[in-house]
Design a protein around this nucleic acid. Structure first.
Lengths: 218, 218
DNA sequence: TCGTGTGAAGACGTTCACAGCT
DNA sequence: AGCTGTGAACGTCTTCACACGA
C-alpha cells in the first residue's frame, strides 16, 4: 500500500538520516573541521557507523580510506542528493496556535526553506505584524500558489477542516504537505504527505516508559 | 544499536498504529457505530486491512468472523494494551514559541494526558495566565517532578540547551522525553526519547516532491 | 457468504565482517 | 595501521492467501 522511494532508489529512512547528517556536517563545518570519520559522524548523529556508511553509499563514494570524509565535500554532495540546493518556498495554512508558533520558529529558514505566505480562515490584521509574513484569507490561496509556484504546504488547521483544505491545496497544485492535524489525509498518489502527529508521538513515548520499569540495572 | 519493543513483543511501528486505530475507534464510537470490519477501520486509518488485522492480533483476538470487531470492546482492549487507561501527567520544559503553542494545543488532553506544569528559564508572570498551567523557573524542576511523580516531559528548549536540560530531567527521574529540539539527545538506555524534528520532516516532504514530477499519469 | 486470524512468502532495512585503498 | 565501501547474513515488518468460524 505504501510505496515510497520513487525514482531515486534511496530508501525513505535513509533520506531522513541524510538530512540529519547534513545538519551535523554543517555544525562540524562551522567548527572548522575539515575531515571526519564515519564513526565520529555517526556518533554525532546517534546512529551506527556501519549504517552511516551504507547511507552515504547511496549518494556516492566520497570517503578516503584510512582517513574519512571531507566535511565540506560530503555536505554539498548530500545537499545535492536531497535536492536542497535552492531555497524552497513554502506556505503555511492555518495560523492558529501551532501555525503561528511555526511561523515564528526559525528552524525552517535555517534549513533552506522560506515561508512566503500564511493563510487563515480569519486573517486578523494584528497577527500579520507579529508573524512577519503576509497573511491572507482562503480566497487568495489558489492564485497565490499558482503565481508563486509554491509546491510545499504546512497544514495546521483543525482536524475537522484538514481534509477539505488539503483538497483545495492539491487542486491548486501543491505537491507536498506537512500535516500537523491529527487526521489521515486522503490525497492523490502524486502528492506526498508527512504527518506530524503530536499526541500520537507522546502516546508512543508513554508506552515505552514503564515497560522498562524493572530494567533499572544496566 | 536501536532495540525497541522491550518486554511486550509488540513492534514499535505497531504501537504507533494502534494509537491511530484507537483514535479512529473513538470517532466511530461517537458516531454510534457498534461494529466495524478490518477493511473499514483500515481505510479510516490509512493502512492495509491485512496489516490492521496483524496489528490487532498482537493485542488479542477480538473479531467475530463474518462480522468484524465490536468497536467499544476493541477500543478498550487497545487502550489497555497501550497502557493508557489512566490519565498520565506530563511536564513541558521550554515555554517559548513552540512550547506555549503546545500548551494551548488541546490534543494532548484529548488523548489522555495532563500537562501539570511548565518550566522556563525566564518564567514570565504574564504567560502564566495565558497558558492555563502553572509556570515555574528551572530551580523548581527537580522537586516538582519528584513530588508529582511525573515520568514524561515535552522538551521545547533551544537546541543549545537541550542536552543540558535533558540531563537534568533524567537526573530528576523523567523516563520519557518528547523532544522538539533539533538535537540528538544522549540519554541512558532506560530513558525513551522520541524526536519530533520539524525541519527534518519538511526536508523529507520536500525530497519526495519533484521526484514524482514526470509521474503525473496514474 | 463474509470477514477474521495466521502460516508462509516476500520486501525491506540493518548489521557484520572483511577486502581493498591510502 | 586506519578507515571506507559492500557482499552477504540477519532480523524485522508487510503482504499474500487461505483455512476456519459465524
Amino acid at each position: 500500500m505504501e510505496s515510497e522511494r520513487e525514482k531515486t532508489g534511496i530508501p525513505k529512512k535513509t533520506i531522513y538520516r541524510l538530512s540529519l547528517y547534513h545538519r551535523c556536517l554543517s555544525k562540524l563545518c562551522e567548527n572548522g573541521l575539515e575531515t571526519v570519520s564515519s564513526s565520529a559522524l555517526a556518533k554525532a548523529a546517534g546512529v551506527g557507523a556501519s549504517q552511516l556508511r551504507r547511507d552515504i553509499s547511496h549518494v556516492g563514494q566520497f570517503g578516503t580510506r584510512g582517513l574519512g570524509y571531507q566535511v565540506e565535500e560530503l555536505r554539498i554532495a548530500i545537499r545535492e542528493a536531497l535536492g536542497r540546493e535552492h531555497l524552497q518556498p513554502v506556505i503555511l495554512v492555518g495560523a492558529g496556535n501551532l501555525g503561528c508558533a511555526l511561523l515564528r520558529y526559525g528552524g525552517f529558514q535555517k534549513e533552506g526553506f522560506e515561508v512566503v505566505g500564511a493563510f487563515d480562515a480569519v486573517p486578523e490584521a494584528v497577527l500579520q505584524k507579529e508573524i512577519g509574513v503576509p497573511l491572507y484569507g482562503p480566497e487568495k490561496l489558489d492564485s497565490f500558489i499558482a503565481q508563486k509556484g509554491v509546491k510545499l504546504a504546512i497544514l495546521c488547521v483543525p482536524a475537522e477542516n484538514a481534509q477539505e483544505v488539503a483538497n483545495d491545496l492539491v487542486l491548486s497544485g501543491i505537491q507536498g504537505i506537512l500535516n500537523f492535524s491529527p487526521t489521515v489525509l486522503q490525497v492523490p498518489d502524486k502528492v506526498t504527505v508527512n504527518n506530524v502527529d503530536l499526541a500520537l508521538e507522546l502516546e508512543n513515548v508513554s508506552f515505552f516508559i514503564g515497560k522498562d520499569d524493572e530494567e533499572s540495572n544496566a
